[in-house]
Write a protein that binds this DNA or RNA. Structure first.
Length: 891
RNA sequence: GGGCGGUUAGCUCAGCUGGUUAGAGCGCCUCCGUCACAUGGAGGAGGCCGUAGGUUCGAGUCCUAUACCGCCCACCA
């Protein structure tokens, strides 16, 4: 190993190496340990279709940060990874590939051969995404990795299906469902996306059978007319009262259809009369049920016109629409057209327009399942973070419709229902039945359909832990601790896991649901393939490192809110890593001999700590408290901002600088103490940062001297402990004073435009309470502000005549600058200072003269205000005294 | 038509249960190649916290309206 870190932070040099070392050592593996409390996260299984995108990267980062944090806190931490077979999405891809390679469709090669290809796809792409997850540094337990179609998960699906069926919660029905003609499958309601499209209303006249005027109705889908079975009007609608019960003629088709009265039509809308097409519209379907109407079908599963459409048979629905409207118009039935925005349903996978279609499908009866699922969230057993998402959840759950779970696909869990080939009897069972209980024959055919992919992912919280077997894992790790996912899949997945878990396990699947937003592009647009604005996390890792990407994704983001990706942000994160890298390099440089061995170092017992050491310890301790509390509240963005500030603005900007004089000029004993202090601080910082930036922290850690009994890796070390009692109050005050004075002198220097190399003379006037601190600050003032001499004075009479000044609470700082003095700048500064202080004084005086405030506000706050007032008044007085002096110099 | 979120510095965003002079990153201005780091250091400018009311001793934070922007849900011919 090298002696020290390389000069530049270069994550490629170590990220992959460290991941491999972690994984091979078994550090990610969670073995049941009943002496510890479990902490469990189940990874939302990425689809095997794609590759890692920014949304995954964010999701992974959140989970890994939580996992690493809890692991360091001593929990038995399981982060269980896996992938999803993604039934419909994968099938589409495999069909495309097949078409491209052989020109054949899936029907041509048959189910068996097709599934073989699908599994091959799974091997290839499932493997790819897993390696991408590794690139992120995710510390998940690969030994427990699962796949939604592996044997265990498949058993769970079957078992669950059968249980629900036996309880009457799964049923088969002939109903109107959403049908995607391109995917060739049924879809559930939430798989249909609603978009408004520019379209038209066409008003057509349906002439009366009696030769009368008939009735005019509007439609946005004229091609469905072939399947019309009635015209409905509201019974209260006076206009049509006399026409109810009469018949009209379907124009050009010639079929007679009745005019019926139903509550459904709204007299205010359109013409008040609605054409009823039970096979093409959910409302019409229900009207049809109520009135016992036939359900002829005009559009087939490929969105082509059926035989009932006469000469239009075989035409595409839109092609037909055009021709049909033209024909009706020519025949004089088109009354008028209107431009209109039409709400349209699209398939969430392929974005083609969905056509409602009547068919035999399987459904889950939702009401009974939803109730306990609503209850557990309402009781707070299962809590959304941030809380507002429970409204989204309730809204959906409380108004839930039955779930269509059958898909006309091959890739997925095949429905465990068997039909007797003789009598058609249906048997739901795990395996093919031997004998038909009804007719005694032995030939069965399994249901052709597969299950909705979300049916299996709904079981993820327990199927991955062994259910239906009563495993130790299930007893120990269930219910899981946190589910981390985006708000876009609350309905698809989160809600379904909750109701499935309540049904199967009788208990909520997770304590918390941490919801994150979308990662958008720099302009705030959703990243999408069609826009081509997606940013590949792997490319970012390649350029900036996984740590920088991870850090950037959490920085300054509140849970549930969308964020924008920008290279500026990731650069900032990388720069931060570089900063830490170099600060660590400085520490290590001072720890090691030429030959790489460690120089002697003090211990906790022997170290003689200076004020700055104690100050840094104290600052770190406070940060430990804050960061821990942020982590526990899932405020990872805030925790990260604090560690950033701690490392950069405290450790690098001040502490390291403050140690240098002792490090360079101190005797050996002093140096030994400084080394101890630097290492101790750095180690704590690395621990605090590790959940966010695992690689760089682990790499730096490996260069530091190991404590006795240390874990093999930083990732296995324990989280720093917060000590509630305030330590080192005097030393902390001294360093804070020193920092204040140093800043004041630098400020004066800058205002005066004095050269940085120019040695200055500082004159300090400290109030009694600050005197000791100010005296203790002398060395630091000299080294940090390039001051050659510090004088302490007791009253402002002793202020050297020509000086610029600045002040901090309790301390005034004067710098005589005989020739470099910029009196004009000083004068202006004094004036603005005067204005500021006057403002403060009057603000606080106003507050204090307010009887309400004095009477009602807590005494602590009132006193604090009084003290501030004294301080400000004092400063103001000093400033006022100084103004004429400087003014005189101006002339 | 319901519901939710946003509106804070030039840009992107934090700001927990109301309480020091409202913060960060980037950008901007001035100065600095020095021995951890120019992927850097020092100093600085910049905000009536969308608008109007209200509650309170005290409001970016709570309430009520309102205006824009965005998202989700919904069977409107």
């Amino acid at each position: 190993m090298e002696n020290n870190l390389a000069k530049n932070y270069s994550p490629k040099e170590f990220e992959d190496r460290l991941y491999k070392a972690w994984e091979e050592s078994g550090a990610f593996h969670a073995e049941i340990d009943k002496t510890k409390k479990p902490f469990t996260i189940l990874m939302p299984p990425p689809n095997i279709t794609g590759q890692l995108h920014m949304g995954h990267a964010l999701d992974q980062t959140l989970q890994d940060a939580l996992t690493r944090y809890k692991r360091m806190q001593g929990f038995c931490t399981l982060w269980l990874p896996g992938t999803d077979h993604a039934s419909i999405a994968t099938e589409v891809k495999v069909v495309d590939k097949l078409k491209k390679e052989t020109g054949l469709g899936k029907e041509d090669i048959g189910r068996e051969a097709f599934l073989e290809r699908a599994w091959a796809w799974k091997e290839e792409f499932g493997g790819r995404i897993k390696n991408q997850v590794r690139k992120m540094g995710s510390s998940c337990d690969w030994e427990r990795e699962r796949f939604t179609m592996d044997e265990g998960c498949s058993n769970a699906v079957k078992k669950h299906f059968i249980n629900l069926y036996n309880k009457g919660l799964i049923y088969r029905g002939n109903r109107l469902i959403n049908w995607c003609p391109v995917c060739g499958s049924a879809l559930s309601d939430i798989e249909v996306e609603h978009v408004d499209k520019q379209g038209k209303y066409w008003y057509f006249r349906y002439p009366g059978v009696d030769g009368g005027e008939g009735i005019t109705v509007a439609t946005s889908r004229p091609e469905t007319m072939f399947a019309d079975t009635a015209i409905a009007v509201n019974p209260s609608d006076e206009r049509y009262k006399d026409m109810v019960g009469k018949k009209v003629i379907l124009p050009l088709v010639g079929r007679e259809i009745p005019i019926i009265a139903d509550e459904y039509p709204d007299p205010e809308k359109g013409t008040g009369a609605v054409k009823i097409t039970p096979s093409a519209d959910p409302n019409d379907f229900e009207v049809g049920q109520r009135h016992n109407l036939d359900k002829p079908v005009a559009i087939d599963e490929h969105a082509k016109m059926t035989a009932i459409c006469g000469k239009y048979q075989g035409m595409d629905r839109y092609e037909c629409r055009k021709a049909w409207v033209a024909d009706l118009d020519a025949a004089g039935y088109l009354v008028k057209t209107e431009d209109m925005t039409i709400p349209t349903g699209e398939c969430y996978r392929c974005h083609n327009v969905v056509e409602p279609r009547i068919s035999d499908q399987w459904f889950v009866k939702m009401k009974p399942l939803a109730e306990p699922a609503i209850e557990t969230v309402r009781k707070g057993e299962c809590a959304f973070v941030p809380e507002r998402f429970d409204k989204t959840y309730f809204h959906w759950m409380e108004d839930i419709k039955d779930w269509c779970i059958s898909r006309q696909l091959w890739w997925g869990h095949r429905i465990p229902a068997y039909y007797c080939e003789e009598c058609g009897e249906m048997i739901v069972a795990e395996d093919t039945p031997a004998v038909c209980p009804k007719c005694g024959c032995t030939h069965f055919k399994q249901d052709e359909d597969a299950l909705d992919t979300w049916f299996s992912s709904a079981l993820w919280p327990f199927s991955t832990l062994g259910w239906p077997k009563d495993t130790e894992e299930l007893k120990y790790f269930y219910p899981t601790s946190v589910l981390v996912t985006g708000y876009d899949i609350i309905f698809f997945w989160v809600a379904r896991m909750v109701f499935s878990s309540m049904e199967v396990m009788g208990e909520k699947p997770f304590d918390h649901v941490l919801i994150h937003g979308l990662v958008r592009d720099a302009q705030g647009r959703k990243m999408s393939k069609s826009l081509g604005n997606g940013i590949d996390p792997l490319e970012m890792i390649d350029v900036y490192g996984a740590d920088a990407l991870r850090f950037m994704l959490l920085f300054g983001n509140a849970p549930g809110n969308d964020m924008r990706f920008s290279t500026e942000k990731i650069e900032a994160a990388r720069n931060f890593a570089n900063k830490l890298w170099n600060a660590s390099r400085f520490v290590i440089m001072n720890l090691k001999e030429e030959d790489g061995s460690f120089k002697p170092m003090a211990t906790a017992e022997t170290a003689k700590l200076a004020a700055e050491d104690k100050w840094m310890f104290s600052v770190i301790n406070d940060a430990i408290g804050d960061i821990t509390s942020n982590m526990d509240k899932f405020e990872l963005g805030l925790a990260e901002a604090k560690i950033y500030e701690l490392i950069w603005n405290y450790f690098c900007d001040w502490y390291i600088e403050l140690t240098k004089s002792r490090l360079y000029n101190g005797d050996e004993e002093t140096k030994m103490s400084v080394r101890y202090s630097l290492v101790t601080c750095l180690k704590n910082l690395l621990k605090l940062l590790h959940p966010f930036m695992p690689f760089i922290t682990e790499e730096i850690w490996s260069f530091l001297p190991a404590d006795e009994g240390a874990a093999k890796f930083l990732m296995l070390e324990s989280w720093p402990e917060y000590k509630a009692e305030k330590l080192f109050a005097d030393d902390v005050a001294a360093i804070e004073t020193a920092i204040g004075i140093i800043k004041a002198i630098r400020n004066i220097r800058s205002k005066a435009e004095a050269a940085p190399s120019k040695k200055l003379h500082a004159v300090i006037l400290a109030d009694a309470g600050y005197k000791a601190s100010a005296l203790a600050a002398e060395d630091h003032i000299k080294t940090q502000a390039n001051v050659s001499e510090v004088s302490y004075i007791d009253s402002k009479d002793q202020v050297p005549g020509e000086a610029m000044s600045d002040a901090m609470p309790g301390v005034e700082i004067y710098v005589p600058l005989d020739d470099l003095m910029d009196y004009k700048a000083e004068y202006e500064r004094l004036l603005s200072e005067k204005k500021r202080l006057e403002g403060e004084v009057s603000r606080i005086e106003g507050k204090l003269s307010n009887q309400g405030f004095v009477a009602k506000a807590p005494e602590k706050i009132v006193n604090a205000e009084r003290e501030k007032l004294v301080g400000y008044k004092d400063q103001l007085e000093k400033t006022l005294a100084r103004i004429p002096v400087v003014e005189a110099k101006l002339k």
